[in-house]
């Protein structure tokens, strides 16, 4: 795969596509013991793909498990993979042998939409949309059962992050909420950002939490919050670029995220956010083409070259994970594996 723009490049390249694994349905994934487990929250393929990524350049699809409904969120604790199946259950899959997962049990969630997961001690915490938030005792994997759910007075929960023993959730129509588990019961201990913004997602970046939210009548912001002092917003930074749908923590309060086929850098503490590059591929032979978002950074020859190339945007990026020197990205129905180039912000640690 020769990069068509290599000859003229004035700007450093960030990623090099080293391998692609097409799958039936792409979506969120996690990496465990050299294997990618990939579900697909939307669509009707209802698959869970297992992809061996021990050797990223020759990664391959090992198997595909099929369910009745879509597999959305995934999390691993010990050797158990927890996979939410839309409106039905959280499925329990043994990864004793990671290459051949074994679906051995489920915890019912009939009629429930289960979004993000996290673990607090022996409890699996799940965002349950309009049903609020729920905890499941998973101390004995094959006896997993719901022990408590807590509905919000208003709003729904799609995203959450766990820092130490606290659960930080986005309440889509009412800011954020903080929970703890006390004696197997969920307790809401704070609701620090009641009305100021509607949080749409939350990420853990370094020691901090980044909430993405949109205050009434304003542009989207990143709010940086110290999980120990939730009443105080450390940084409130208005974005003039798109918010990330998936994010990688780089270092020192810097993170790189994706929105569609655009890679964006964020450093809210330095009041900085910038579109870094866009991902394309050539129309016919599908060679990866990366173009800087800043056209001024391009030489005339590059601009001319780009304009002559028949390129298409890469499919939307739904999930990205950094594994060593590689970036694994679910883009459309493909797991793309990129090596990180030295000069890239993504190479920083």
């Amino acid at each position: 795969m020769t990069h068509p723009l290599d000859i003229h490049r004035k700007t450093p390249r960030n990623l090099k596509l080293v391998h692609s694994v097409p799958v039936e349905a792409g979506g969120e994934f996690i990496v465990h013991e050299g294997y990618v487990y990939m579900g697909s929250r939307y669509g009707n393929k209802n698959t869970l793909h297992v992809i061996d990524v021990h050797a990223p350049k020759t990664a391959k699809l090992v198997s595909t498990m099929r369910f009745k409904r879509a597999i959305g969120s995934l999390a691993v604790r010990g050797t158990t993979l927890y996979a939410s199946e839309s409106q039905r259950a959280i499925n329990l899959i043994s990864l004793e042998n990671p290459a051949t997962p074994d679906y051995f049990d489920c915890a019912l969630a009939l009629g429930k939409t289960v979004y993000e997961f996290g673990f607090v001690g022996d409890f699996l915490v799940a965002a349950l949309n309009w049903d609020g938030i729920g905890i499941m005792d998973v101390s004995v994997p094959n006896k997993a059962q719901w022990v408590d759910t807590l509905k919000l007075e208003e709003g729904y929960i799609e995203h959450l992050a766990v820092v130490r023993d606290r659960i930080f959730a986005t309440c889509a129509s009412g800011g954020i909420a903080v929970f703890e588990i006390q004696e197997a019961k969920l307790v809401q201990i704070a609701s620090p950002k009641g009305d100021d913004f509607n949080a749409s997602s939350v990420f853990v970046v370094g020691e901090h939490l980044w909430f993405i939210g949109t205050p009434e009548g304003k542009e989207t912001h990143i709010y940086v919050i110290d999980p120990n002092k939730v009443d105080e917003v450390l940084v409130s930074f208005e974005l003039d670029v798109s918010a990330p749908s998936t994010l990688i923590d780089i270092a020192d309060g810097v993170a790189v995220g994706w929105n569609g086929y655009t890679c964006i850098g964020y450093a809210p503490s330095q009041a900085w956010a910038r579109n870094l590059f866009k991902q394309h591929e050539t129309d016919e032979d599908k060679v990866y083409v990366e173009t800087p978002c800043d056209r001024n950074a391009l030489s005339e020859a590059e601009i001319e070259e780009i304009e002559m190339l028949s390129i298409m945007c890469m499919d939307d990026t739904s999930c990205v994970v950094r594994e060593g020197d590689f970036i694994l990205a679910a883009q459309g129905d493909t797991l793309n594996i990129y090596s990180i180039e030295e000069a890239s912000l993504l190479a920083k640690r």
């Binding site: 009745k68 259950a89 679906y103 489920c106 019912l108 009939l110």
Partner: peptide, 11 residues
Amino acid sequence: EDLVYRKAVFQ
């Protein structure tokens, strides 16, 4: 062929 269904009946 459906563990979730079975579990729902039982529980």
